[in-house]
Design a protein around this nucleic acid. Structure first.
Length: 488
DNA sequence: CAATCTCCGTCCTAGAGGAT
DNA sequence: ATCCTCTAGGACGGAGATTG
């Protein structure tokens, strides 16, 4: 874990420049009559707005709703502040009495006595539905580098920073995450607030420079996804972000880890048919490679995060002893004879060549829109790949993608040309098609997918009994049809 | 700082059915 | 009887977190 380190001369120079620019910006805001140092205005603030503020509010209120201020975050913050200033604030005043006097005073949840309870009450209404956007690549990076406690705090702070201003007062954080009555308390109920704060201090210290940084005014500035991704060296953000319920960050650390892990499954890929979740098989060994989570732990996490597993089988041509031998030794090590007792595939009792594929996984957690993901990736590219060499590497990468796409087409059309140890497609960048069990293309592609050793060639598995008895989904493939089958 | 608790990695077994 | 492969689940011990 990284702690405080001495600053390099370059960084010091950059910081000085930053302070200078902040001072200039502050002077400019004062000149234009805009509010400054909102965070420092904790004490009593005049109930009535100043003349300049009133004029400004009037101007804002006349602006159409769709107008922004050149920044999504700024727009959001301004709109919310305006809402508080006008109707929202008036209602709040009526409802909370004394509380109303502090309108516009602070954008974050405050730590004052009574106020925290009020905030918690309002939070209790929304906590069940509240979610935070989590990028799976980041979540896995955090898991790999053992930053789960920091990740928990980071996402809870992201939730607390509903205004999107990017910072929170450390006192407020302490109150929200350690107070006995706080809904966002992350320690055991039995733990004394002192110990909880001791623990939180350690977490904040260990996350310094990775997830956040503190300033001299008792504020914690949260880093953005791009910066964290660069620090964790988790590469570009792939897949879809995930809406993780805030309450999942409030249990034990195991629960937090489990849900960070589960984002990998949730964000993997959308089903192009839009009829359901994608079911791309992926073996536990590959999951271990990609996420760093050992198989046994994957299963534990699956239980905790309620990740649903689906077993998969792929069938080939009609069973023939010679072809079976060939399949066993040359193509699928785990080929077996599948007897279609129900006649779902054709004639009742007909036998086919089949083999087991790795599980696929889904969760009930929803995918989020990609939103700023591309911009974040551009930032990551800028920081991690700079110069001509990187540009050349990108060109080569694009070229290899084109080539592999061409090869992919030929593979899917010929079905299991080869059994290889080339590595997992997800790891190598060639993506097998997402699937749906009513999609005829699925089994065809699934078979090609397996031939690329997602599931290492292996095993004799009988889906009608034993391992296959509890099968969730069974895919047939005869080159033309794919459909769900039922157990005998 | 020591006692206690929690979490996790490793190892082992089981299950499927055909081949050896 | 053993092996093949993949997954599931239990037992165990060590490491790290938590607690007073």
């Amino acid at each position: 874990m990284s702690g405080q380190s001495t600053l390099s001369p370059a960084l010091q120079a950059a910081q000085e420049l930053l302070y200078k620019k902040r001072a200039e910006a502050r002077a400019e805001r004062i000149r234009r009559g805009l509010p400054v140092d909102l965070h420092l205005q904790q004490s009593a603030v005049s109930t009535e707005p100043s003349a300049a503020e009133a004029d400004l509010t009037a101007v804002y209120e006349q602006l159409p709703e769709h107008l922004g201020w050149g920044s999504a975050a700024a727009t959001k913050a301004m709109r919310q502040a305006l809402a508080r200033r006008s109707g929202g604030a008036a209602e709040e005043r009526g409802r909370r009495g004394e509380e109303g006097k502090r309108r516009g005073e602070r954008m974050v949840v405050t730590s004052r006595e009574g106020e925290a309870a009020a905030e918690n009450r309002s939070a209790s209404v929304s906590l069940n539905d509240a979610t935070v956007k989590v990028y799976p690549a980041l979540a896995i990076g955090m898991l790999k580098q053992e930053y789960a406690p920091q990740a928990r705090v980071y996402y809870l702070l992201r939730h607390l920073d509903h205004v999107g201003q990017g910072w929170l007062a450390v006192d407020d954080i302490r109150e929200q995450l350690t107070a006995q009555a706080s809904l966002l308390r992350i320690a055991n109920r039995k733990t004394s607030p002192t110990n909880a704060w001791r623990s939180l201090r350690g977490i904040l210290n260990d996350g310094e420079g990775v997830f956040w940084e503190r300033d001299d005014y008792g504020r914690l500035w949260l880093y953005g996804a791009a910066k964290i991704a660069v620090t964790l060296a988790c590469g570009r953000l792939t897949g879809y972000p995930v809406h993780v319920p805030v309450k999942q960050f409030l249990g034990g650390i195991k629960r937090v880890r489990a849900h960070l892990y589960a984002t990998f499954h949730t964000g993997r890929e959308k089903d192009p048919t839009k009829h359901g979740p994608a079911h791309r098989p992926i073996s536990q060994a590959t999951l271990r490679e990609l996420t760093g989570v050992p198989e046994a732990t994957q299963r534990r996490y699956n239980k905790v995060a309620k990740v649903r597993r689906y077993k998969h089988y792929a069938t080939g041509r009609k069973f023939d002893p010679e072809q079976h031998k060939e399949a066993l030794y040359e193509r699928w090590g785990n080929a077996f004879k599948f007897t279609d007792y129900k006649g779902k595939q054709g004639a009742v009792g007909a036998s086919y060549l089949a083999h087991r594929l790795p599980n696929s996984y889904t969760t009930k957690t929803l995918q989020a829109s990609k939103g700023r993901q591309e911009k974040i990736n551009k930032h990551i590219d800028l920081v991690t790949n700079v110069g001509e060499e990187a540009a050349q590497a990108r060109e080569q990468l694009a070229l290899s993608h084109k080539l592999s796409a061409g090869q992919e087409m030929s593979k899917t059309s010929t079905m299991t040309k080869q059994s290889t140890d080339e590595g997992h497609p997800a790891a190598t960048g060639s993506k097998p098609e997402a699937s749906h069990d009513q999609n005829p293309a699925y089994s065809l592609q699934l078979t090609a997918y397996s031939s690329q050793s997602v599931c290492a060639p292996s095993s004799l598995t009988q889906p009608t009994r034993g391992n296959g008895a509890g099968v969730d989904r069974l895919f047939y493939h005869d080159g033309k049809q794919a459909r769900r089958a039922h157990q005998r």
